[in-house]
Design a protein around this nucleic acid. Structure first.
Length: 937
RNA sequence: GCCGAAGUGGCGGAAUGGCAUACGCGGUGGUCUCAAAAACCACUGGAGGUUGCUCCUUGUGGGUUCGAAUCCCACCUUCGGCACCA
């Protein structure tokens, strides 16, 4: 057969040609169109770091492919792009190299625009938004003022990380390592208290939580947000100090109130100074000073041993009336709940640890649900050790005989259930020798003496028990509490405390209340008595938006000595960032030293006033950028054109990195809810669907970094293999949500595939000499339509890797079919057109070129997505699997519509199957239509 | 510690109750060439074999089922998030 060589595939020429044509014809310009359903596709706003790296490609190319797919499926697709242009790297470049942040940023954007165009994405460049331009940040400032007017912005003192050597405040990501040192000079950072602006995101905590049920986001991201919001239900209970000051605590376990044997306040708690007795003053002051020096992170290190000091003061437990000591400790955080806790050491691990360390009393008030208890029978403590052991065995009680220190062998007994415990104690009472005791711990805490059984059911009981034990066995003189004594025995440790719900015990009138209703009953009772009420607490904190930096949107607030704090009048926006500032770090905003900026006049009294000199967190800019896109730099009196917004919003499909799960994605949801309450939008959630892609790793399976030297520069591959190859390879690596590693040989393989497509479409064979058989044509069409189905389903579900695998398989089939008589039939032409349309979202330039060669009308990207015909895709012949006792013994080619009886008969008649059946009788025959016959013998 | 994701050939991965290892990379052999590269073709999980076949294999151990990579239980490893949150 004679072949006419196709022109060589020259990706670079072809891609620049089509990019120019797409631009010239305005192919991706987007306008409202009420005849088509709209689809707002969005990929996360890039930061203009300088060069487009492979990570940008990995995030954006598949997102573009999906947007193109939606467009071919009849949607009016809006796929905008812009730049998150404020932020630290620009300012650092200014400090280090003397380039103005604006110039650095705008130069980077200019370079990235060119690189982004090389990707061949369908971006609506006419909607580009750059967040550092005054026309943009005017609206960022507008949002600040609106939030302020709604009471959602407020100012308070809050700590920032500060590097004493660089003399500058640091962002969270600039603080590194366990020892929390400065990213640039490795000096350990210190905390500084500064008066800063916050947004009251906590006002929407419940809505942010509940809204998660309404959006199609990955469960992983929703779980992270739920975790971050950290809603916990419980009660607020008011204790009183002995002097009478109210002292409120938050607890999730009001059912354990009777077991609250002490209280702990955060060292910063305002009541501490008043409560501390003169004798304890010195210790408390020292501890408070030490706690203040530590960073929040240091304080929160879990593995650290508990510390604390006694204030000398006492409180009254409101339910038991008992006098309990008040301590301070840094394991209690001022920022959560009320900054004070009731400590229930018997049912909280932290309180237990604290109580054991400081000799505070521990009383169990909740029954163990598992009924487990332990007892150690010391050598010589019972009348007849062997007989006792025998009694245990005959009563089905488990024990182990092992040495107890150097005293000889004892019995380590494990009990289960109230009945066993009861009988054990009775038996022990009968066996225990005078001058000894035995204890049962766990499900019951009972001390068996020769004349009585004492239960640990109150603080006082504990004291009596301990006193008697000391008189019997002096070596325990050192122990301050019964529990401390028991804790010294490792055998007991796992049954001393539990945090489960269970029947209330030792709790006055509530004793006997079942675990399931304990919490609600106690809360109801507390409310009736006026001692407390149901309460919900959140882990979520308000959003700190002040940055002591130059390169950000100035916070539009004015401080007047006479009129106080007030927002800049809307008509005066934007508050322009001055160009002429000194960036040298001082630990404060460079704007503070710009007199022309700082000094202003009061909009109310006209007198001299000062501007706020801090700028805003860049997460502010990115909280509303998807609204800006619909009409960038809008000139009206709201941030975006309401008509455009009404048509395009909200975002239908968002894609981006999972690293934004709790910051950006939480802030933008908060913004949308606030915007709804301002009357700007009529929906609750900004992004209906979210897909989070994984990370692209270096060839060595490690995160790409300059120091590792495993960074891949996409430009190198774009110039040689072409953008289409890079795009398609990134999509082929593996499931998009899992990320994957770069492979320089893998991308060659993809390039080969693209070349094979090129050749199968463009290389001309001689016409076949014989006409094609019907069966051959049917098979070709079956393959075509099956491929349409797979590729459609896979791209819709972001499974680009398997979509490409299906296309490779289809192409491999076409390479063979080309040598047969189906070549140049109508079915052949259908196959080539289909192949071209199916690859259009993945490799847009290649598809456009091939489409032109096939005689299709410009542009391939405006064509309808091919539909598949299930009748054509259906198999005529299937492989019927025959199993004998679950093992495959034969594969039969049978008509797809074979009758059950025929299939079974064929299976049983197969020679290999017969060998396994031999003379045995068939016990069961399973038939799955179209799949298999399973024979059980 | 809690929450989440993942574990399959030499490698990336496919298959979510019915042929394990699709597709690609790598490897081996071949065609073409003076030669090489490229391209193309064939083979490629392991072990055995009487080669028109068998056994083993999806992190480990159990279970459910005619049948399990897939469902259930327990455990191990890796990665991500949160972490003294009362």
């Amino acid at each position: 057969m004679v072949k006419t060589k196709a022109p060589k595939y020259q990706p670079h020429d072809l891609e620049t040609k089509w990019q120019a044509r797409w631009e010239a014809t305005g192919l991706y310009r987007t306008t409202r169109d009420d005849d088509r359903p709209k689809h707002y596709a969005l990929t996360m706003l890039p930061y203009p770091s300088g060069d487009l790296h492979i990570g940008h490609w990995y995030a954006m190319a598949p997102s573009d492919a999906k947007a193109r797919f939606m467009r071919m499926n009849g949607y009016n697709v809006f796929f905008p792009i812009g730049f998150d242009a404020f932020g630290l790297p620009a300012e650092n470049a200014a400090i280090k190299r003397g380039i103005h942040p604006k110039k650095w940023t705008m130069d980077n954007i200019a370079r990235m625009r060119i690189q982004l165009r090389q990707m061949g994405a369908m971006w609506a460049w006419d909607h580009e938004a750059v967040s550092c331009l005054p026309e943009y940040y005017k609206w960022t400032q507008w949002f600040f003022i609106k939030l302020y007017e709604m009471g959602l912005a407020y100012k308070k003192f809050a700590p920032v990380d500060f590097c004493p050597k660089c003399n500058t405040t640091l962002a969270r990501e600039q603080v590194w390592g366990e020892d929390r040192h400065c990213e640039r000079c490795s000096t350990p950072v210190v905390k500084r208290e500064l008066n800063q602006w916050f947004f009251k995101i906590t006002a929407y905590a419940d809505e942010l939580l509940d809204g998660l049920d309404k959006i199609e986001w990955p469960e992983r991201v929703k779980a992270m947000q739920r975790n971050w919001i950290g809603r916990s239900e419980g009660a607020q209970v008011t204790f009183r100090t002995e002097r009478g000051d109210p002292l409120s605590v938050f607890t999730t376990r009001p059912d354990t109130l009777w077991g609250a044997t002490f209280m702990v306040l955060a060292p910063e708690h305002p009541l501490v100074l008043e409560l501390t007795t003169p004798e304890q003053r010195q210790q408390v002051d020292d501890y408070r000073r030490q706690a203040a020096r530590q960073s929040e992170i240091e304080r929160q290190a879990t593995d650290k041993e508990k510390t604390g000091v006694f204030t000398g003061a006492y409180a009254i437990n409101p339910v038991s009336g008992k006098r309990i000591p008040i301590w301070i400790a840094d394991y209690v955080m001022m920022s959560y709940g009320t900054g004070a806790i009731m400590a229930v050491p018997a049912h909280d691990e932290r309180d237990f640890e604290f109580a054991v360390k400081f000799g505070l009393p521990i009383v169990p008030v909740i029954q163990r649900p598992d009924g487990a208890a332990k007892s150690l029978v010391s050598p010589g403590s019972v009348r007849d050790m062997a007989g006792f052991a025998e009694w245990l065995t005959t009563n089905g009680i488990g024990y182990e005989q092992a040495p107890v220190g150097s005293l000889g062998d004892g019995l380590y007994v494990t009990l289960h259930g109230a009945d066993q415990i009861e009988r054990y104690i009775a038996q022990m009472r009968a066996s225990i020798l005078p001058g000894n005791w035995n204890e049962v711990v766990g499900s019951r805490f009972a001390f068996v003496f020769d004349d009585a059984v004492w239960d640990l059911d109150s603080v006082e009981a504990g004291e009596c028990i301990l006193a008697r034990c000391k008189s019997i066995y002096p070596p325990v003189w050192r122990n301050r509490t019964v529990m401390e004594m028991l804790h010294s025995l490792p055998f007991y440790r796992d049954v001393l405390l539990h945090a489960e719900y269970g029947e209330m015990i030792n709790s006055g009138e509530f004793t006997g209340t079942p675990g399931a209703e304990a919490r609600s009953k106690v809360i109801k009772w507390l409310s009736e008595k006026g001692l407390g009420h149901a309460e919900v607490n959140y882990r979520l904190r308000d959003w700190l938006i002040s940055r002591q930096r130059y390169w950000g949107a100035p916070i539009p607030m004015i401080y007047c000595e006479h009129c106080g704090t007030m927002p800049v009048p809307i008509s005066d926006l934007p508050v322009l960032l001055p160009d002429d500032v000194d960036f040298m770090p001082t630990g404060e905003s460079p704007l503070k030293y710009n007199e022309a900026f700082r000094n202003t006049t009061c909009p109310r009294c006209g007198g001299p006033a000062e501007r706020e000199t801090d700028t805003m967190d860049t997460f502010m800019c990115s909280s509303w950028y998807h609204y800006a896109y619909v009409s960038p730099y809008y000139k009206g009196d709201v941030p975006f054109d309401p008509l455009e917004g009404k048509y395009w919003l909200p975002v239908d499909q968002y894609t981006g990195g999972v690293e934004h799960a709790t910051m950006h994605l939480m802030y933008t949801r908060f913004f949308t809810k606030a915007m709804r309450d301002m009357g700007l939008v009529d929906f609750d959630e900004p992004m209906l669907r979210l897909f989070t892609q994984g990370t692209i790793l270096g060839e060595d399976n490690e995160k790409m970094s300059k120091s590792r030297g495993n960074v891949v520069n996409p430009d190198d591959y774009v110039s040689t293999l072409g953008a289409d190859t890079v795009r398609a390879f990134l999509m082929f690596i593996g499931p998009w949500e899992l990320g994957g590693s770069w492979s320089s040989t893998g991308i060659e393989g993809l390039h080969r595939f693209i070349n094979r497509i090129w050749n199968v479409v463009l290389e001309k064979n001689d016409a076949p000499t014989e006409p094609a058989q019907d069966a051959e044509v049917a098979e070709l069409r079956r393959c075509t339509h099956k491929t349409i189905k797979i590729v459609t389903d896979d791209i819709r579900a972001f499974k680009f890797n398997t979509a490409l695998a299906a296309l490779m398989q289809f192409n491999n089939y076409l390479v063979k079919a080309k040598e047969s008589n189906v070549y140049q039939t109508e079915a052949w032409q259908e196959a080539l057109r289909t192949l071209t349309l199916l690859i259009a979202p993945l490799t847009p330039h290649l598809a456009e070129e091939l489409w032109e060669h096939l005689g299709g009308a410009y542009s391939v990207h405006q064509q309808a997505w091919p539909s598949y015909d299930p009748m054509l895709a259906a198999d005529e012949v299937i492989t019927l699997i025959v199993q004998v006792n679950g093992k495959v013994r034969a594969r039969l080619q049978v008509p797809a519509d074979i009758a059950e009886a025929d299939a079974k008969a064929l299976a049983l008649a197969n020679d290999n199957v017969k060998m396994y059946l031999a003379d045995k009788s068939v016990h069961k025959l399973v038939y799955v239509p179209g799949k298999l016959v399973s024979i059980v013998i």
